[in-house]
Design a binder for these strands. Structure first.
Lengths: 191, 191
DNA sequence: ACTTTTACATGACAGCCATCATTTTAAAAC
DNA sequence: GTTTTAAAATGATGGCTGTCATGTAAAAGT
């Protein structure tokens, strides 16, 4: 049956939200078009009225998830605390799309890869801004801290031993903080 | 046709080698049983004489790839140089199975996940040994450095911009070295 | 030499998936 | 209120994949 214009626009948004959550949770390949539509209470038929293909959905869902996360106005340390928490590790569907989907995106279209690249660049810039420094050492710190965060979440998720998994998150968090403190101490007037 | 006993044993080894390379290159889901066998010049039919299922192959290929890498007798800094090199980034098929497959293993059998967990634990222990320290700070350093290495490789592979990709590897490598030097300096007698 | 065993080839089957053609039905337009 | 439009439902199709049944030929055993 046909639905109202607003209903259709809302449906489109809900497809993006549900798809981006399912993709993060199970990966692009493991989620079918029918599964996404069913999660909304719809059937697979209407899908191609909204998106031209599954690849198209992947690109838009990625952009949607990346954009959603950009609203983060947390202080850097709180952001890192949350990122490296067991809660984020266990919340793949609602978590960072880069740590969740970067590896999966390798086998996707150039458009999808491009969206992830923009996300990586944006994240580094955001962290750099939060570090309130733009010399090379701040950029190094932003990049390496971010790499450690992504790696720790990937490893913590892959590890089935909960003790080891928690330890990876905790020690990585502490290590990053060691580096932050060291840098702050190096700024004249803060030591 | 039937082949000799040694030939069969060799075929089994070659299946493991080819499969572990293909899996690392394209992911578990994207590689079919037929594709693996074809890469050896065989057909899909004989596969189930060697392995009970594709899931079985995945576990054994993972263990094979992880074991292969354990022969590393490089000094720690050289190992890190290689790990964070463009060459390793571009060599998924022959590279570290953890950075290449950890995310993919989330959706695999408990046995496969267990193999990866053992690999993570072994890698941390190996690095700890190389750091020649076993106090908590050395363990923290091993875990966080390793997380940064994995994250940097994942991000560098996902990033399509070659300049940014190279930068992620290079800055992460430098950042880890900063930490190593700081720790060495903290050991009495080395400063 | 003959028989038995078995590694691999061939071919088939069921299940899943993306995509599309057609139909239905309710909202928009008049 | 009637007609037009289009969003979603239904159903079909083709391709791919894991798995298995059967066939075949060469090695192993006697």
């Amino acid at each position: 049956m046909k639905v109202s214009r607003e209903q259709m626009a809302e449906n489109r948004q809900r497809i993006l939200e549900v798809a981006s959550r399912l993709f993060r949770e199970k990966g692009f390949e493991a989620v079918g078009v029918a599964e996404v539509m069913k999660a909304l209470g719809l059937t697979h038929g209407g899908f191609y009225g909204h998106f031209s293909s599954k690849d198209d959905l992947i690109v838009q869902a990625l952009a949607h998830a990346l954009g959603e996360r950009n609203g983060a106005t947390l202080p850097l340390r709180e952001y890192m605390d949350e990122y490296l928490s067991p809660r984020h590790r266990d919340n793949r569907a609602g978590g960072c799309p880069i740590s969740g989907l970067a590896a999966d995106t390798l086998r996707q279209t150039p458009e999808a890869r491009s969206a992830v690249t923009d996300g990586v660049r944006g994240q580094i810039d955001w962290m750099l801004e939060k570090l309130s420094g733009s010399d090379e050492s701040a950029r190094r710190q932003a990049i390496a801290s971010w790499a450690a965060m992504v790696g720790a979440v990937v490893l913590a998720r892959a590890t089935t031993d909960p003790v080891l998994s928690d330890e990876i998150l905790k020690e990585t968090r502490a290590w990053i903080d060691d580096g932050l403190n060291r840098s702050i101490a190096a700024i004249p007037g803060t030591a």
